[in-house]
Write a protein that binds this DNA or RNA. Structure first.
Lengths: 351, 351
DNA sequence: CTGAAAGCGCTTACAG
DNA sequence: CTGAAAGCGCTTACAG
């Protein structure tokens, strides 16, 4: 390993001069800088982040806290890779690298917080955690600059998709198609997941806005954010023997479960049932029929999270909550209500 | 920040004693260790990785080189998150953390290799790169312990799915259904992607094994690993006016493009055309009809990559190529050949 | 413009 | 069982 001392010796200069030349300090002559850079290149010198970080207290490292196994998420969370990629690209441009924080170190278990201190990260991104994770709560009350993506924590700067307005829009849209009995398949209620909560709020708000009554019988919770939960929720809904002609789902995967149920039970979408999802997953345009849904803008979420964190690191003020608009993607799972089919779904009567 | 000196002062001991106590060295009395640990806990002492790494030359860091924008992959590569998760979990158990290597540092551009040296990583995982990326080639010829996942580099230990045998199996399976004219939609040929190459080899080998003639007219290359490429490949195939009754696709996304084309052009799968994919993407069981495909075992790939890298770091011998078996998932896109439809597809004659 | 001195927080022989 | 000395590779005042 080539060090600054090797360069110093070869050039007959002192280590501090080498250091300053390499860092392009103003008090070093251009000719010296030239010589130093040339030799450094020749010998393949690379600085050592540990030595540098030890003395400067700056490590150019962002810690990412990312919980993969919870909420019953499928291994691949639809937002994870996209947000991570754009976040990474943005912090990279500012000179930071991304370290995935774990909870084990050697044979010792460390908390996230201890780990962040151990690595002396300059800032922390919390991605897809749960709101009541005590490990994460410790981090949140720490001295580090922090930004959360997707999940809202009190007093923590958070970047998420707008969840309320699109939910209201979903209701409005269905209403405009003549739908009056609009069911909602919500996200899991056991876990405190802010998107789940906010989408439900938006649904209720949307009904109020339009003047439709909110009927709790029309709301069913998916146990997890996955297809099976959507399937089971739909089954549950059917067993309630109530009347409805449309379903808004808090996630595409839930909607996919509904579609599966409908296929098996010969319920025709959109003729008999209108359906809206949330996420615009990769497959949403290829489902049968293509799913009407809301596209979350992963790239913007990641970028804004990065920019906000960078600001915090630099001591600038930032907003506590940043909402990223969502795009409504109209495909083919919704239809103007059709009197012909009106009576088929559910044996209830209230209309 | 609490340091070892603070602990030493408070306890009237020397820093080395504190260090040794904290590291549970045998030459320190149990009572001293007890005292030290207690105070460390009280004061919230956390070691400093830079100081430790600087002197021990061991940083408990694995660098991950991961290229997201190439090959025309969709943002979310179907394997990426799964492999990364299980790789991370496995190295964590051994005490390592995952650092995503970038190419920018501050305002300087560093090569991957320089970056790895800068951070003094203990080993490197190469995920989803291209075979001819010069940046990566530098890394490969370096002093670091390296493992590659998904992409084969000469003389680098690589963990991938078995690509050949399943491709042969696809041909065999289709043959057993009476299919004799089996087309192949290959992965992009412009990029040197070993999975693309190996799956093509497997297809040809499969034909030979069975005694079917290899007809280059039946092979078309997708420009990218995405749906659109599959769609265009299918269009291309149709325009060739040759006869075929089945298609094996080198990826699910390509197969999805084929399905889209068939829907638009009123070609019925599987009655008129049998179809097989590769990957078992999230949506594969929900496509219409559900796609017959091969499931890549992300978890096993990630774990084996981690274990192999750990072995290399510890100086143990490892195999250069590790193939992870793939599961054949039989769904509903293949069917015994139906004489009734035999003449519809393609206007060619050779059967 | 250049360099001697000190120090970041830790660990490793080695001496006692 | 404990500690004094040296050093990992760098940077930061400060002196010249």
């Amino acid at each position: 390993m080539v060090t600054i001392y090797d360069l110093a010796k070869k050039l007959g200069l002192s280590p501090p001069t080498i250091s300053k030349a390499l860092n392009d300090q103003p008090d070093i002559s251009e000719s010296t800088k030239e010589k130093v850079r040339k030799l450094a290149e020749e010998l393949g010198y690379t600085p050592n982040s540990s030595a540098r970080g030890l003395i400067t207290k700056k490590n150019w490292l962002i810690g990412m806290i990312y919980e993969e196994e919870h909420l019953g998420l499928d291994v691949e969370h639809p937002l994870f890779a996209g947000i991570m990629n754009s976040f990474k690209a943005r912090i990279e441009r500012a000179g930071y690298e991304l370290l995935i924080i774990s909870r084990v170190l050697g044979n010792k278990k460390l908390s996230y917080l201890e780990h962040c201190r151990y690595r002396q990260v300059d800032g922390i991104l919390i991605l897809n955690s749960t709101i009541d994770n005590p490990e994460v709560l410790h981090v949140i009350h720490s001295e580090f600059p922090i930004v959360s993506a997707n999940i809202v924590y009190p007093h923590v700067c958070t970047v998420t998709s707008d969840n309320k307005e699109p939910s209201m829009q979903a209701v409005r849209y269905l209403y405009s198609l003549g739908q009056r009995r609009i069911a909602f398949i919500a996200g899991p209620s056991e876990y405190s997941s802010s998107p789940a909560v906010e989408r439900l709020e938006g649904y209720i708000l949307g009904l109020h806005e339009i003047g439709l009554e909110y009927d709790p019988e029309l709301v069913v919770y998916g146990h997890h954010w996955n297809v099976e939960s959507g399937y089971n929720a739909m089954k549950d809904l059917q067993q309630r023997k109530i009347h409805y002609t449309a379903i808004y789902c808090a996630a595409d995967v839930l909607a996919l479960g509904v579609m599966k149920y409908c296929q098996e039970n010969d319920i025709h979408i959109p003729d008999e049932l209108s359906l809206i999802g949330f996420d615009d997953s990769q497959w949403a345009s290829y489902s049968h029929p293509p799913l009407t849904t809301f596209r979350q803008n992963r790239q913007v979420i990641g970028e804004l999270a990065a920019e906000t964190l960078l600001k915090k690191i630099n001591g600038e003020d930032v907003d506590e909550r940043i909402c990223v608009p969502v795009d409504f993607i109209e495909r083919q799972t919704c239809k103007k209500i059709d009197e012909f089919y009106l009576t088929r779904l559910g044996k209830g009567s209230t209309m």
